[in-house]
Every structure is written in C-alpha cells, then in structure tokens.
Nucleic acid binder design. Structure first.
Lengths: 157, 157
DNA sequence: AATAATTATGAAACATTGTATCATTGAAAT
DNA sequence: ATTTCAATGATACAATGTTTCATAATTATT
C-alpha cells in the first residue's frame, strides 16, 4: 500500500472514531493537499481538481469541506497566506497540541516543527497570565528556508 | 497634550529618524487605528475615514499607506483576520523583537503581550535548527478573552 | 422496503480583501 | 524655474470568502 493510501486509511479511521464521515469528496480534497504538499488556496484546490480529476467543484463546497477537515484535525489553515495544508501527523500518535509552522516566504515550503513542549507550556502560562484562553493553538512563523537563503546568497555574488 | 497627539508626535519623530515622512494622509490613517483600538480592515478604515472625516480615500492608497506604516513599525497586520492595528509601543523604548498578539475570537480585542525573551530566543533556536531563518517575527494566538469567557459562562447558567 | 429525518453537496449571487497599471499631484533639489 | 523623485488618485480587476436556498445522498424509523 502506498504511503498516500495509508494516510487516507488513517484519516478514515480517525473520522470513524470521532463519529464523522470522510466522504469521497472530502477524501478527494485531502488527497489534493497531500499530493500538492505545498500550501494551497481553496481556489487553487478548485483548479487542481479540475485539471487533475476533471472534477468541477463549487467554491462553497470546497470551503465547507476544508472546514470539516480542519475540525477533524486533518488539515491546517495557514492564516499567513490564506492557504491550506494537510496535517503532517495524520498517521502517527503525535498529539495536536500547538502546531508550529515555519513558512518560507520565497518558495512557500512549510515545515511543521515540534518545539520543546516546555516552551509551549510557558507561552500558555503567559497567555493565562494575561487572562486570555488559547482556543486555536497554532504558531506561524514567516521565514526564509535554507535553500532560498543560499540561492539569494549565490545570486548576489 | 492628549495621549493621541503625543503618540502622533512620537511617530513623526520616529519617521524623521528613519528618514521617512509621516505625511498628513499617513497620519490620518494612523490616527484612525489609534482611535479605533480594535483591529480594522483596510476597507474598514476607508469607511471610518468617510464617516468621521468626510475623506474619500481610494483602497489603493490605504493599502499603500498601511504598508508604509508597517515598514516603519507603527502598525501591525494581523494575519489571522486580515486586519490592522496600531503598534502598542510607538512612544516607548520597547524594542520590536517578536510581538505577540492575543486575539479574542469573540470581541476581537487584541492584547500585545511580552513574553519572556528567553522563550522567544528558544523558539528562534528551534527555527535555526530547522534551517529556517525568521524574517517577520510575530506570533498571533487565537483566544477568548476573560470578559467573553465569563459572559458565555453566565449565559449558560 | 418505504418514509422521514438528517447530513452532505450544488448553484447563484454577492461581499470582502488585495493588486496592477497608469495618471496626477506635491515636495525637494539643483 | 525646472527637473526629479516621492506620494496619492483612479480604474479595473483578481483572489478570497460567505449567504442563501435548492438538491442529493445517507441514515434512522416504521
């Protein structure tokens, strides 16, 4: 079984456990995001579906399905560019505490890292101290990735 | 001198030091954000200008001016909702390391907090370890503020 | 199995956010 | 005074997201 199919199967199980359904359309959109790897906008998915599956899906449905996938922790929305990306931890026991995304501003590569959980806990303490309660823990950090760094360095010589 | 005028004066000095100019239009938009206090969209500013100053400003100009204010560290853009807010530290020696915003999802109140800088440094180390380089350090955390929490708690009784 | 109830998706129209391009105005500099 | 550069205006458009109402598919109930 391919890795992709394995992830899809994992996602199905995950939904079943939560009492929700990973319908074919939802599966299709998850597939897109898994294949694309890079963050993709809702309309980007629309185009991708059209070009690769001949499937015309209305924007409303795509947004709805993306919401479903987010609620079921299968997809993250990157606020920084209004784009979506498949969760990197669908088939591992990794918990979904506070995902942290490093986003390259040049090539849009995204790396989901796992900082020291003590660090995250301290951040949480700071938040509680300010009388706020974290509801959607997610950190996005706008970066330049190593490849793009060396690229520009070379160019400027 | 009012606090507002004091901040505007501070912003002017700040620009002068950087060799940029806080023109009247730029000042006007900064004023809006300082008065509104809550995060405001570009078009929200447009409406505000119209209603409160009778000033019709094209969207392009507003976006341009917001970019200017961001570059000059007078305004932050909150990625989470595509809205803008005046920097809380225009007239203090506070440095602009890594601003951290707690954003209430109900009432949109924003609190700019200052976590322990050791914490931020560790986050930076994690990033470097992943071979990324932070370029626009800013953390946005989606929360519920204390007021909205107690409000819903009361309602549910 | 037939029907009702619920959940999921489609379609159309629209609202909001953001940008590209080119023209115009205003300020600063020689 | 004229040139130059910086700042703003105007128009058109692209991209993102939502509202509303209709239809289809699934599940539950009899």
């Amino acid at each position: 079984m391919t890795k992709l199919e394995n992830i899809i199967k994992g996602a199905e199980q995950h939904c079943r456990r939560k009492g929700t359904r990973l319908t074919l359309k939802r599966q299709l959109i998850l597939r897109c995001l898994l294949l694309r790897k890079k963050p993709t906008s809702a309309y980007g998915i629309k185009t991708y579906l059209k070009e690769n599956y001949g499937e015309e899906m209305p924007a409303t449905s795509i947004y709805r399905i993306l919401s479903f996938l987010q609620e079921n922790l299968l997809v993250h929305k990157l606020q920084a560019h209004n784009k979506f990306i498949a969760c990197a931890h669908i088939v591992c026991k990794h918990d979904h505490g506070t995902p942290q995304f490093l986003i390259c501003q040049k090539c849009e590569t995204v790396k989901e890292i796992d900082s020291n959980s003590a660090l995250i806990e301290e951040l949480q303490r700071d938040i509680r101290r300010s009388k706020f309660q974290l509801i959607s823990p997610q950190l996005e950090m706008l970066c330049i990735c190593n490849d793009c760094q060396t690229e520009t360095a070379t160019k400027s010589i």
